[in-house]
């Protein structure tokens, strides 16, 4: 970082703060205020609610909690990685400079741009085993009874992941596209002349340039996906038999059961996952970048 030369105003005589410093404090105040009101206060209040050890005892003894933790880990590992592999692949397709690909990319963005609640609900209706459009079509075209998409726990989880990927894929594809577009075209040309195949160009040119972005985005997505409430709750509501909850939806279940302290406890339980990821990511964003770029 190079120092930025800020012209210093003439120093006021030593009498409390200089005008420069006073202005600094005045301009800083709104940020501090926002932080106190919207971050520090609610977080402390939540921790305060979740302070009783008994909350955790009952939480850990609740069989739903155990299933939820497994679901969450599974959801994170599978959905996030699948999403990123797809995004990495698709970003390579969408960076091609063809007019029809431009148009296709606009259509491709839509799932990300539309509001979540109506779309996830409509998917839910489409997947209804009795009158949903999916099973109706399956029956009409192939004369087969479609599966119980949302009432089989495993299938319902898979569908929730699918919804999550469908919804978040465009965004991450765009991010990875930006990463690909930042790679100079000559590097690929040099690699062609050097004798590289398409796969070797990916391995030696694309991936080394994208690695940092890819890993950082994956981390960020892990954090966001941990908080993704819509894909699961709107699709399955945690049903059947509370078997498809993830940590994000479990809190709501406890709030509905009027157990606010349990709801808070689920969030606290997630912290040991989240905080290391946040820390790791901030570290990558601040320090490591220079080494790999």
């Amino acid at each position: 970082m190079s120092a930025i030369a800020i012209p210093h105003p003439p120093l006021a005589p030593k009498r409390g703060l200089s005008t420069w410093q006073t202005w600094g404090l005045i301009l800083l105040a709104p940020y501090v205020l926002v932080f106190l009101v919207f971050v520090l206060y609610p977080v402390s209040y939540g921790l305060w609610l979740a302070r009783h050890p008994e909350s955790y005892k009952t939480l850990f003894e609740d069989p739903v909690f155990f299933t939820t933790v497994i679901n969450t880990i599974f959801f994170l590992l599978v959905a996030v990685n699948l999403k990123f592999i797809l995004a990495l692949y698709l970003s390579g397709f969408f960076v091609h400079e063809r007019r029809w690909i431009r148009w296709l990319s606009v259509i491709f963005i839509i799932p990300w741009a539309v509001p979540a609640i109506p779309t996830v609900y409509s998917i839910r209706f489409m997947l209804n085993p009795e009158w949903g459009v999916v099973n109706s079509l399956l029956f009409r075209w192939f004369q087969i009874d479609g599966p119980n998409w949302l009432t089989d726990p495993q299938l319902a989880m898979a569908m929730a992941m699918l919804v999550h990927i469908w919804k978040a894929l465009p965004f991450w594809t765009l991010i990875l596209m930006a990463g690909r577009l930042a790679i100079p075209k000559e590097l690929y040309e040099a690699a062609s002349v050097d004798g590289a195949s398409a796969w070797q160009k990916f391995k030696y040119v694309t991936w080394p340039s994208m690695r940092t972005l890819y890993v950082t985005s994956t981390l960020l997505s892990l954090i966001w996906t941990l908080g993704d409430f819509n894909s699961v709750y709107l699709l399955t509501g945690g049903q059947p038999a509370d078997k498809t909850h993830v940590l994000a939806t479990l809190g709501i279940r406890y709030i509905r059961l009027d157990q606010l302290d349990h709801a808070m406890a689920t969030i606290v339980v997630a912290l040991p996952f989240v905080l290391p990821m946040v820390y790791f990511m901030m570290k990558r964003l601040s320090g490591d970048e220079q080494k790999t770029s």
Binding site: L187, A190, V193
Partner: peptide, 28 residues
């Protein structure tokens, strides 16, 4: 390109940024 057995020096040099000088030179 890869089958033409030519070598090219670009105006921007187009060195692979993640490879050392040794790796750049030995890449082909």
């Amino acid at each position: 390109s890869k089958d033409r057995d030519i070598a090219m020096v670009f105006q921007s040099y187009a060195l692979y940024p993640h490879m050392t000088v040794r790796e750049n030179m030995g890449f082909s």
